[in-house]
Design a protein around this nucleic acid. Structure first.
Lengths: 223, 223
DNA sequence: TGTAGTTTATGACCAACGGTCATTTCATTG
DNA sequence: CAATGAAATGACCGTTGGTCATAAACTACA
């Protein structure tokens, strides 16, 4: 009598196929322009059915965004699995984040709304904590590396590892967000290449949290 | 026959009083929750009248936001007028930005939407360029200081002054934005004091764009 | 296989809201 | 005091997120 289990599986796969549809629509139109009717049509379901599986449009949006977080975490894990030196690992993690931005921009864009104040109110408690957990597990990969670097005397101690992650992540994200939305404007009106700004800024930030030993190793890596 | 001039003045003051009403409502409810009916009521006008003066809700929002930009620019100008040394001026500008965040948080919050991709589409061309100009004039205050610092050999040359401004501004803003929306969460769940993170991160960033001479002067200022 | 009972799906419907426009009100002018 | 033009109004519209009474599909058991 595996009926219950089968139902469970079916429910799960239905949820997934709804996310598939939502992803297509959100990627194409963004949060504000996408409509639930639109998603329902892509999912070949009635609108009401969507609400049996997700509490709100925003919940659905976050469900898609979490796929991006999981993807990025996988990329981070791959880097760490290479067992580079601490300093090199940090540099590679930074580059990986930039690569994620370049290759999976649709997912990256979704991260922005997670920081929008008004956005949170539309989201269910469960989905919010699920996202928080996912985000935390991502950051903890980096804090792990930083702790090792601290023990090795490569990382300065003014900031805790978690604080360093926050600074690096926040600063890189917001610069990439700006590239995404205003990159062309900056290039044309101010002749600024924000991609260049991003690369240099990442290096400067990394340097700024490293001891002299760390800086030395980092600069050797650049060449 | 100053009729035309008087009409012009009246129109201007009507626009201002609409912004007054909009400001009250936006401060209280934010962009998404605030409604045009709400603003109309506060302005003691019919909703249709608002649209005689502003093209859209978003235009109105930006009109309020620009007050914040102007206010901040004034604060920056005051700092510069003190004629501190270049390094000290930069440090003071950074602190001023943080102070603006602390004392005028309602304005600061509005800055966020300016970077939201979907947001731009609802905004009229004129309002957009007006904001751009305002923002530019703000940033150019800082680039001016940085250029002087460069000439004095206090500022590194890997990044152009405008790029440095972008990095400092973007990174500080996004950290403050996070403090605003998730500060308590971080304090409770990760025991992280993001205000502390912000202060240190600002110093690290400043250091990272300075030459040794600049760094020396900066560290003397801290004590 | 038939039927009672339960789960899942549906789409007409609702309320809220941004924005419009025909109509009215007000001010200016000669 | 009309005549003319500008400014203000609010009923109205289309869109959209979300709901819920009803229907369809599926399960379980006799």
């Amino acid at each position: 009598m595996g009926t219950v289990e089968r139902k469970e599986r079916e429910k799960e796969s239905r949820k997934e196929s709804i996310i598939d549809a939502a992803q297509k629509v959100f990627f194409e139109k963004g949060l504000l322009t996408a409509t639930m009717d639109d998603i329902a049509e892509h999912a070949e379901l009635a609108k009401g059915t969507l609400y049996l599986y997700y509490r709100s449009k925003e919940d659905l949006y976050l469900a898609v965004m979490m796929r991006g977080l999981v993807l990025l975490r996988g990329m981070f894990e791959e880097v760490i699995a290479q067992h580079y030196s601490t300093v090199r690992t940090l540099a590679e993690l930074t580059n990986t984040f930039v690569r994620f931005f370049e290759h999976h921009r649709n997912y990256f864009r979704m991260f922005h709304f997670f920081n929008t104040p008004q956005f949170h109110k539309q989201v269910s408690e469960e989905m919010m904590t699920a996202c928080d957990r996912c985000n935390e597990s991502l950051w903890s990969l980096a804090t792990g590396v930083l702790e090792r670097g601290r023990a090795e005397g490569r990382i300065r101690t003014e900031l805790r590892p978690i604080e360093i992650v926050i600074v690096l992540w926040t600063s890189a994200s917001s610069l990439m967000m700006r590239i995404d939305s205003q990159g062309e404007l900056f290039r044309q009106k101010l002749t600024v290449d924000l991609e260049h700004t991003l690369r240099v800024s990442n290096i400067l930030l990394l340097e700024s949290v490293m001891t002299d030993a760390g800086k030395k190793e980092l600069s050797e890596l650049q060449s």
